[in-house]
Design a protein around this nucleic acid. Structure first.
Lengths: 203, 203
DNA sequence: GCATAATTTGGAACACGTTCCACTACGTTT
DNA sequence: AAACGTAGTGGAACGTGTTCCAAATTATGC
């Protein structure tokens, strides 16, 4: 018996499988967008994606895997969009804040979606390492890209740059959780990020 | 009809109620310590605390409230223990790292417990704001105490000190989540915290 | 085109968080 | 001491994530 795992194996399977996978992620996205974490119910996802429950679980072994995969797709897209353009701002801090604010705006426009994806990310255990890694890389790449002003000069990426980007990503994540769970407002979150970036990126 | 809520009301109720509350938190602690988040099952907590399931829910309206309250008790104790002593180290960075490492050691000694409490903390929504606040304050107070060298000179606590402490707390939390969920090792976590504190607390 | 393997389906079943209810025990007021 | 209200008990029941299975469907090798 071949053990196929369409969600993590490198080869993406047949066209029909790729199509199913996309339908599932789209359904997840829609449900998350309209009702948040709680609305992403496995039976509902399966029904909307027009697959059986068992099939859904074959593609994504848990609700968390499913949501984190959807988050990964989001971040990849955001990262690609931002990668195309120059980032305005004269200092690293300004550019990073520009990008973070931009992302924050996007997320605030879809609070339910953001809540669902963030919750899943925070709840993920080690079985979701691969999917998490995708998100972490995208986050780091977004921040380093902003630090370097949007010029794709990858040679200039030092270890310290990456370390800094990871620290900023950490603060961003904590702030996001606080916002998503209603413990802080969007304005407080923005102010907090300014403080943090100001501290970390003193030029 | 008086609406009693023994878990959040300021007055802690009768001695019997305080006793029940303690038994419940102790049971939570024991179960979390031996089996982590999944082992803290409401029926199991109720049974071990010798309380009916309905009573458990009267004291703590959800599993998350329960675990976050237990976490709050932990942090309060840690904060009190640390508050008594002078913190060794010549610079703010050294002292903060000393304290963080100390806490990390404690947490690594009880990985299951740490996993349960951290998971709950990250999953909490706005209905848990009060309990979360207790934890946040304890964390901030631990870090600022370390920054000031352990001398209880509260007058010196500036807004910036608090902001810095919060940023460090954010990084610490993200690192903790990564460690708890098996995405990074204890050593990586420690190194990451050194980087972050070094960046944030350049004297 | 057939035989065989792999995948998908539909749905039952289970686990655990949560809710609800009827009943009992207890402490307070009078 | 009697009546009343509040808290606690025991247990059934419900919702949703997850698992499992037999039957149907689809893909693959010959």
């Amino acid at each position: 018996m071949t053990i196929a795992n369409p969600s993590t194996s490198d080869d993406l399977g047949s066209a029909a499988q790729r199509e199913r996978r996309k339908r599932i992620l789209d359904a997840t996205y829609d449900l998350a967008k309209s009702g948040g974490f709680d609305a992403v119910q496995m039976r509902a996802v399966a029904e909307r994606a027009d697959v059986a429950l068992g099939t859904l679980y074959r593609y994504f072994p848990s609700k968390i895997h499913l949501l984190v995969s959807a988050l990964g797709r989001q971040f990849d897209e955001a990262s690609a969009r931002l990668g195309e353009r120059e980032i305005p701002g004269d200092t690293q801090a300004e550019r990073v804040l520009y990008v973070l604010k931009r992302m924050a705006r996007g997320m605030q426009g879809d609070p339910k979606l953001t809540e669902a994806l963030t919750r899943a990310f925070m709840f993920a255990d080690s079985s979701v390492t691969n999917e998490i890694h995708v998100v972490g890389m995208a986050m780091t790449s977004i921040v380093t890209h902003a630090m370097h002003g949007g010029v794709p000069d990858e040679g200039a990426l030092t270890d310290e740059d990456v370390a800094i980007a990871r620290v900023i990503g950490d603060v961003w994540l904590s702030a996001l959780v606080a916002w998503v769970t209603g413990r802080s407002t969007a304005a407080e979150t923005a102010a907090h990020m300014e403080t943090a970036v100001g501290l970390i990126l003193r030029d």
